[in-house]
Computed example of a mutant assay.
Amino acid sequence: MSGRWLLRRTGLILYTLLVVSVLVFGITQVLPADAATMLLGENATAEQLAAVRDRLGLNDPVWVQYWRWLSGVLVGDFGISMRTGLPVLPQILDALARSLLLAALSIGTMLVIALPLGILAAVRRGRVADLVVSLVSYLGVSLPEFVTATLAILLFADVLGWLPATGYVPLAEDPGRALLHLVLPVATVSLILVAHVSRMVRSELVDALHTDYVRAARLKGLPERTVLRRHALRNALLPTITIVALDVGYVLGGIIVVEEIFAIPGIGRTLIVAVQNRDLPVIQAGALVMAATYCVMNFLADLTYAALDKRIQYA
């Protein structure tokens, strides 16, 4: 891995974030309703609305507003929330931390379950184990998040009473209760991720088991377990890394329904509230942070590629 590649990749990430910032800022300018009206209400007078627009700089040209916002972002100032009057960055980082905790637990649970299932289905291809894993995968893919979450709440919270239905407890406040409240959300998200990843692992491992280098390893007399672990599985996991990296972005921004049902104040739910209240600084900061997370995860996926397969060289 060369320094030129790292420099080029870093430049690509920065360019991507610049494009995203332009798109997000442009979209927020054409959202319905007016920020001043959202702040003061529909009964505000024209003079009051004009004063607020002037204070927020909404009367300035769009390019001036964009540059003012971007120059603040470059020094870590994402502005002040129009809804709460508090700095945006701490609010976004707190929401991101909650979503990252949910993502880490969900992806960790998924890997523990999906990898063995995918391997079992590939090794037992066409047998009962393969059919069972395929059935579980189809169920996970076909059931929407709100259906899985609702069924989980009805069964484990209402009927059995084993787990709390909704709510969020900070991990630093009470780790035991915090993890207890996260069991159902993590299970809901993990079911979807397991369905995707187990099928990917199965498909890639089946292909790898029929390659020439695996046949050569078997002809050398290596034990089947060694052939599977050192040769087939190592190469089959490479495409799975990309899926896992994309799943992190999905968990952060694509499970708004899960965060809403279980009342988790994550980044997705924060953005929904910001859109409803026309809170432009929070919308812009949240979208930019989520885009940065996608970029970083894809960058880490490339680094993991190189670590797993020494043949991959980034020049």
Rank of each mutant, 00 (worst) to 15 (best):
L14I: 13
R269L: 15
S81P: 03
L193P: 06
A152W: 03
D77Q: 08
A152R: 04
I261C: 12
S2K: 09
Q313M: 08
L40A: 06
T150I: 06
T28A: 11
R199W: 09
V141A: 13
L252E: 11
V88I: 00
W5E: 12
P170A: 09
V186M: 15
A51C: 04
D60C: 03
S137T: 11
T242G: 13
M82P: 00
G41L: 06
R127H: 13
F78L: 15
V147E: 05
K310N: 05
Y305F: 14
A50S: 10
Q276W: 03
T240D: 04
D174E: 08
A301R: 00
S142D: 07
L74C: 11
G118Q: 10
V22S: 09
M290S: 11
T28Q: 06
L238I: 13
A178V: 05
F78H: 01
R124G: 05
V289G: 10
T150R: 11
L86A: 13
R311Q: 04
A292I: 04
A114D: 01
E173W: 09
Y314M: 02
V123N: 01
L171P: 01
F299D: 04
L49H: 04
A292R: 10
P185T: 04
L120C: 07
E204K: 08
V159K: 15
A152H: 01
I267N: 02
Y15R: 12
V123E: 01
P281A: 02
L89V: 05
Y168K: 02
A287I: 12
R127N: 09
A292E: 11
L154R: 05
T226N: 05
R127V: 06
M38H: 10
R83V: 00
H181I: 11
I241P: 03
I27G: 07
G118I: 14
G118Y: 14
W63I: 12
A104D: 09
L271A: 13
Y138M: 14
I80V: 14
V251W: 13
D54F: 01
A291N: 11
S99I: 09
H181D: 11
D34Y: 01
P223R: 04
S190E: 08
L102H: 04
N235D: 06
A315V: 13
T240M: 07
T84C: 00
A95R: 00
I256V: 15
R230S: 09
V169P: 02
D54R: 14
H210P: 01
G140N: 02
L191G: 11
L111M: 14
